[in-house]
Design a protein around this nucleic acid. Structure first.
Length: 472
DNA sequence: TCCCGGTTATT
DNA sequence: ATAACCGGG
């Protein structure tokens, strides 16, 4: 041993230098080969989130070049092939990976580990606030309810984030990889990248930190305003968290510091942290129950008579249900890649309860359309809305999409923003939507207030009856 | 992180 | 007349 051992730093998520335990561990013994893989798993994830991930990769690559003059080695291929090949070529002693603890990634890691043989694959958990094995009930099981889970995490106290490495040394003689500027990881994106681009938030680690700082400086009112469709009260950090441009530990530490210093609205900042804990809860559930994205968490829900396809689903995905809040939300998502959180609940409730269509169909549509797609949050929240998840709302909690809009968007600002022509709206965002439309899509010609009340009531009644029957 | 229809309290 | 509250689903 000469004291300088080359290791592979396999970048999967967590595109950042701060609080990156995999990066620090890889650098400990010598130079690194920072590698990102364009593999089957990546190309099978949703188009919008893949588009967003490419931006995260580009930002990280630029940051790395600034710091050490060398970017990320981008290889096309499967981990089980590419990692052993690279390890042999540069005589790497180990592979350190930024873990992404979802079932798809676990399969990729297992195959890579086998193929790597004597070269160990070392997982570093930077995607979560706290390791799942550190949080369990008194009887040793996983938490199944949010509130005690959140209390347990708060009491355990998340670890402090670790500093960015001072110096990043890159291994010599790396092979030639893909050229970042030539990559188009999301050629299949339905709305087209040009529209999304116009509405995109800045990618990258520095932008995420700046957004957190700015949010905490204006957090007052977040607790109530976060539900308002017409007020920009949220942190806007969901994309950055999904790709790991900022770590939940960093969010936790900075928020707590500012709460203690009296430098932010404490109750609102704490409410924000409780939302970060919902994300955490979703990941712990997915790790405990890997079938979370395709099997009902409560077994009895496999008996529910979901419809799995049909005209209702097309109307829902194509923003032509005729229900203003539902269509507006779908248009917002199509144009920006994001959807207001409450509108996610409203549209999801309408799909599962009024249309009685299987939540897995909605999960798939969101997975393909959201730039902040997160496998754990998406699965948990769909099951929550459908009624089959832990902490689930009982099925009879059916959102009324009309009264929800009246309550959380009293002046119809949000609806006018996304529905061209709605109450005379001429919003540019609403017009952007038409740029994304395939020729064969129809657009509702008008939204008449009140016409849908009876139909909503009838559909609600039908869903309640199906629920009662399921429970017999 | 609900809806709805009811009752009671407040103007 | 309407807001605020309540209980059952």
């Amino acid at each position: 041993m000469d004291g300088h051992v080359t290791t592979i730093f396999w970048l999967c998520r967590d595109f950042r230098v701060a609080d990156n335990t995999a990066l620090v561990a890889a650098l400990k013994n010598g130079p690194i080969a920072p590698v990102f893989l364009i593999d089957k798993m990546l190309m099978e994830q949703g188009a919008a989130s893949r588009w967003r991930l490419q931006r995260a990769l580009a930002a990280f690559d630029a940051d790395l070049r600034r710091r050490c003059g060398h970017g990320v080695l981008i290889l096309r291929g499967e981990a089980e092939d590419e990692l052993p090949k690279l390890a042999r070529r540069i005589s790497a002693s180990a592979v350190h990976v930024t873990d992404w603890p979802c079932p798809q990634m676990r399969r990729v890691q297992d195959q890579a580990r086998k193929a790597l043989g004597d070269v160990p694959l070392l997982l570093h958990m930077g995607h979560l606030l706290i390791h799942p094995r550190m949080v369990h009930t008194k009887t040793g099981g996983a938490y199944k309810v949010y509130t005690p889970f959140a209390r347990a995490v708060r009491e355990a106290g998340p670890d402090q984030p670790i500093a960015a490495p001072r110096r990043i040394e890159i291994a010599p003689d790396l092979p030639q990889g893909e050229v970042l500027d030539n990559l188009n990881l999301a050629p299949d994106m339905r709305s087209g990248a040009a529209v999304l681009e116009r509405h995109a938030l800045d990618p990258g680690e520095a932008a995420a930190l700046a957004r957190l700082d700015d949010f905490l400086s204006h957090a007052k009112g977040y607790g109530e305003d976060r539900d308002r469709l017409d007020r920009p009260a949220t942190s806007g950090l969901s994309e950055a968290l999904a790709v790991g441009e900022i770590s939940p530990r960093t969010i936790w530490a900075i928020s707590m510091r500012r709460i203690q210093a009296g430098d932010t609205a404490a109750d609102d900042a704490r409410k924000f942290l409780s939302e970060v804990l919902w994300r955490e809860f979703a990941w712990h559930l997915l790790i405990e129950f890997p079938q979370m994205d395709h099997r009902p968490w409560r077994e009895e829900w496999s008996r529910f008579p979901w419809k799995s396809h049909g005209a209702g689903l097309d109307a829902w995905t194509q923003a032509r249900t005729g229900i203003p809040a539902v269509d507006a939300g779908q248009r917002e998502m199509r144009v920006t890649g994001r959807m207001h959180n409450r509108v996610r609940m409203i549209t999801a409730s309408y799909l599962t309860k009024h249309l009685m269509i299987d939540w897995k169909q909605g999960l798939r549509h969101f997975q393909d359309s959201l730039t902040d797609w997160d496998p754990a949050s998406n699965a948990m929240n769909w099951q929550w809305v459908a009624g089959s998840g832990p902490d689930a709302s009982p099925f009879f909690r059916i959102f009324n999409p009309v009264t929800q809009a009246q309550k959380f968007d009293p002046d119809a600002t949000y609806l006018k923003r996304w529905l061209a022509g709605y109450r005379g709206s001429k919003s540019p965002d609403a017009k952007d939507y038409f740029d994304t439309l395939p020729r064969d899509w129809q657009v509702p010609s008008a939204y008449a207030a009140g016409d849908d009340a009876q139909e909503l009531a009838d559909r609600r009644q039908a869903a309640l009856e199906a629920y009662a029957k399921m429970r017999d």
